[in-house]
């Protein structure tokens, strides 16, 4: 008897006017899986993450997290249940330092985010924060302002903030978008090392086929809000329908 899926969606549908951004999506993700989602711009990848995390409400269908129906709950509650995500456009506190930002995630994870008397800078939180920064190669930037980070660092910090919440499922939206081609694989190497070391169940969205091919264990291909293929990277990326949808050529 396998464990219950960390994430299961049943018949998820969402339209914006005439555009179907999610069209009957049925997906199950089991503990420990590393899943890449591939698809062209506008194929519904981000919408999928937005629905799962409660930023958008589905028109129809259900979202099951760790075996329970959590459809339509707000992002705050979903996050508390152990589902955290990073963003295509990094969502950072640009008026704080890198360490301060991370400490806020550490405090939230400890259930002390609403404390208003004890300081944020506590020894064991700082240690914990620095350790996480180290994992993501950001320790040298700890005391720098977030606004001074280069784009690759911004992406990594965005993911580190989500990772520090110690989620049961981590969703990464285009972790390498906006990162230069030379740095892309370096960023992905750092991320995959973290994921492997912590055996974290992870979904990452990516429009670059090379990245998906190299790092995915299982790949879902999206097109027009539908899952058009689900399998190993080799099988999915060889599928002519996928190649046509993602690359625009067979």
């Amino acid at each position: 008897m396998p464990e219950a899926p960390v994430l299961q969606t049943i018949d998820l549908c969402k339209s914006f006017g005439m555009v179907k951004a999610a069209d009957a999506i049925n997906v199950a993700i089991r503990p420990g899986e590393l899943v890449g989602i591939v698809g062209a711009n506008g194929s519904g990848k981000t919408t999928f993450l937005n629905i799962i995390t409660g930023y958008l409400k589905p028109d129809r269908g259900r979202v099951l997290l760790l075996g329970e129906d959590r459809t339509g709950l707000p992002p705050r509650v979903i996050t508390k249940l152990g589902i955290s995500r990073s963003f295509q456009i990094p969502q950072l506190y640009t008026n704080l330092s890198v360490l301060e930002s991370l400490l806020l995630s550490v405090a939230a994870e400890a259930g002390r985010g609403t404390g208003f008397w004890q300081p944020l800078h506590r020894r064991h939180w700082i240690d914990q924060g620095l350790e996480t920064l180290d994992r993501f190669g950001l320790k040298p930037y700890a005391d720098r302002a977030v606004s001074e980070l280069p784009e690759g660092g911004r992406k990594l910090l965005d993911i580190a903030l989500s990772f520090a919440l110690r989620p049961k499922l981590l969703l990464m939206d285009e972790p390498t978008s906006g990162v230069s081609i030379e740095d892309k694989f370096q960023v992905m190497d750092i991320l995959m090392k973290v994921v492997e070391e912590t055996r974290l169940t992870t979904i990452f969205v990516e429009h670059d086929m090379d990245v998906v091919q190299r790092y995915g264990r299982r790949v879902l291909a999206f097109n027009d809000g539908k899952v058009i293929a689900d399998g190993t990277p080799g099988a999915v990326l060889a599928d002519p329908e996928v190649r046509k949808a993602v690359l625009g050529r067979a």
Binding site: R76, V77, T79, T94, T114, F116, L120, L161
Partner: peptide
């Protein structure tokens, strides 16, 4: 003390990014 606490930092942070706070499991409204 208030400003040096987690909530005090969230107060400063919310001026820049409320979405990240909600996605940390904390409530901006709170």
């Amino acid at each position: 003390r208030f400003l040096a606490s987690p909530l005090g930092y969230y107060l400063k942070a919310m001026g820049e990014n409320e979405i990240r706070i909600e996605y940390s499991g904390e409530s901006v409204r709170h």
